[in-house]
Amino acid sequence: MPSGPVKVADIARDSVRNSEAPWDSFNALEYLNENYLRLQQEDRLILTAVRDHFGAHFQRHGGGGLRGLDVGAGTNLYPSLAMLPWCSRITLFERAPGNVAWLRGEVAGYGRNWDAFWRLLAEHPAYQGIDDPRALLSGAAEVVQGDLFAQLPERGADVGTMFFVAESLSTEREEFVKAVNVFVRALRPGAPFAVAFMENSDGSDVGELHFPACRIVTNDVVDCLRGHAADGLQVNRIEIPGELKLRDGPTCMLLALGQIR
Rank of each mutant, 00 (worst) to 15 (best):
M1Q: 09
V6D: 08
K7E: 15
K7Q: 12
V16L: 14
A21R: 04
P22Y: 09
S25V: 06
N27C: 07
N27S: 06
A28M: 01
N33G: 09
N35G: 07
Y36D: 02
Y36K: 04
E42I: 08
D43Q: 14
A49Y: 02
R51L: 01
G64P: 01
A73M: 00
G74S: 07
G74D: 01
P79S: 03
S80L: 05
S80I: 02
M83E: 06
L84F: 08
L92Q: 02
P97N: 07
W102A: 02
R104I: 04
R104E: 11
G105M: 06
R112I: 09
W114R: 06
R119S: 05
E123S: 08
L137S: 02
S138N: 13
E142H: 07
Q145L: 04
L148D: 03
L148T: 02
A150Q: 15
A157D: 07
M162W: 03
V165H: 00
S168K: 05
E172S: 14
E174K: 15
E175C: 03
N181V: 03
V184M: 12
R185V: 00
A186C: 07
P189R: 03
P189E: 06
A196I: 00
M198S: 14
S201P: 03
S201D: 05
E208Y: 11
T218C: 02
Q234N: 07
V235T: 08
R237K: 11
E239F: 13
L244K: 05
G249Q: 02
L257S: 04
I260H: 09
R261M: 12
